[in-house]
Design a protein around this nucleic acid. Structure first.
Lengths: 241, 241
DNA sequence: ACGGATTACATAACTCGGTTATAGAACTAG
DNA sequence: CTAGTTCTATAACCGAGTTATGTAATCCGT
């Protein structure tokens, strides 16, 4: 009943190596032989610990959601829930921008074996856990939305429904930007994402002026966070180093 | 200088078979041997006509954009540009719902060889043409947005920027819905997509009442179109059967 | 402490799928 | 009709996921 008497860390090292090689060398680096060589074991380790490459990739996808949740969790709650939503959007986008290959896998894009067209057909246990972590990340947006409704910034509405709107818009922007649309660098943020956030906030009940101020507040908070991170030497999420 | 004296239709048949097998059997059906067997040729045909599977997959992706553009083109222009935007959203969503596997490839998800993480690194000619077709589809949204601005339904704004907001939201919803979120069936449309459209329209300058009426008009038009298609026997886009 | 059972792992072989080498067939041009 | 080019089939090659098998290490009950 206890199927892991040996608690070696080979499994964890395989996942870690997978994420690192994925970020550095792209999806084609996610190969059983390459991973085994990197960790210093044989390819059998993949099968004893995961049962196959598919489950390992699902575990990588789950790690992406965990990383995403960590990014969103780092955005604390201020007195301005709409500004918090803007900050969540920036964090979501930054997470994907820093590890595009990882999130390409996490979001089901470029599944290295060509499997898993939709997240619906989840066969492995790791895949189901990944979906669970995805809901965890979504919960951050729901909470901020709920506060925006409760404080009167947004019209009374179902917070899940409103948050799903925000999530759709945010996810769509990030996906399209990662696919190369909206041009390189940060310009997509200023030209599309922030105006999109203001549009949504206003549409959900906020005033243009208040939404604009919240966007500015989030921008300032972001700048401060960026400067702080630069000084402390990349103490953010990226698990590299 | 004329590199195709023999104008056999093997190339077209390969692409057609690829799309059909993809829709029916998922990404793992996109294999050189399976395609060749289906068309009745040898695997060499893939290399004489495309140079490799990667270019063939890019051609499939391009076909997805062409199909998407055809769906959007079928949505004509009425006197209510905001209703037209809702209709475009329904068409966009319907296209993806009917051929999820195809658009998983088109949008860069589940690239069957694990290649092409982002659409940025386009190596094949077919891939560049696919990106071009993508902009073609986007143009439909831009035109409707421009009319909404010109007629005063939306605030004065850059139509590309406003359309990019709509596109992000729409694409995000469709992607997340195809990934299994928002539940099965049509419920995501009523609970998320239409409210999202109203939110965006209001945020872009429309009134809640007018946006709601436009959403209703688009719903009626959609019902009419659905009924008409059912009667004429699926004369829409889906090339199945 | 000891012996059986279980787990983790290495080696090597198997399978499948993309690709390539090569030779022949078909078509066009002159 | 001959020459050249394109297309195609056959067969082999190669890389990557997977599996079979043997072995060392660990755990557990006595």
């Amino acid at each position: 009943m206890s199927p892991k008497p040996r608690a070696t860390d080979v499994r964890a090292r395989l996942v870690e190596a997978a994420i690192r090689l994925l970020d550095e060398n792209g999806p084609e680096a996610l190969q059983a032989r390459k991973l085994a060589a990197e960790v210093g074991v044989s390819t059998m380790a993949v099968y004893t610990h995961f049962g196959g490459m598919a489950a390992l990739v699902d575990e990588v996808a789950r790690a992406g959601f965990v990383t995403l949740s960590a990014w969103l969790a780092e955005v604390g709650e201020t007195g301005d829930p709409v500004a918090d939503i803007f900050s969540l959007a920036r964090a979501y986008r930054q997470a994907v921008a820093e590890q595009p290959q990882l999130f390409a896998v996490t979001f089901g894009q470029s599944a290295p074996g060509g499997k898993r067209a939709t997240l619906s057909d989840l066969t492995t246990e790791e895949g189901r856990e990944a979906a669970q972590e995805g809901l965890e990340a979504f919960a951050h947006i729901v909470r901020a939305t709920e506060r925006a409704i409760r404080t009167g910034r947004f019209r009374p509405a179902d917070e899940y429904q409103a948050a799903a709107q925000l999530w759709s818009a945010l996810h769509g922007f990030v996906t399209l930007e990662a696919s190369g649309h909206f041009g390189p660098g940060e310009q997509g943020i200023d030209h599309i994402l922030i105006p999109l956030g203001i549009t949504l906030a206003v549409g959900l009940g906020d005033t243009v002026e208040q939404a604009g101020r919240s966007a500015e507040a989030a921008r300032a908070a972001w700048r401060a966070w960026t400067a702080r991170r630069a000084k402390t030497g990349n103490a953010g999420q990226g698990e590299n180093d």
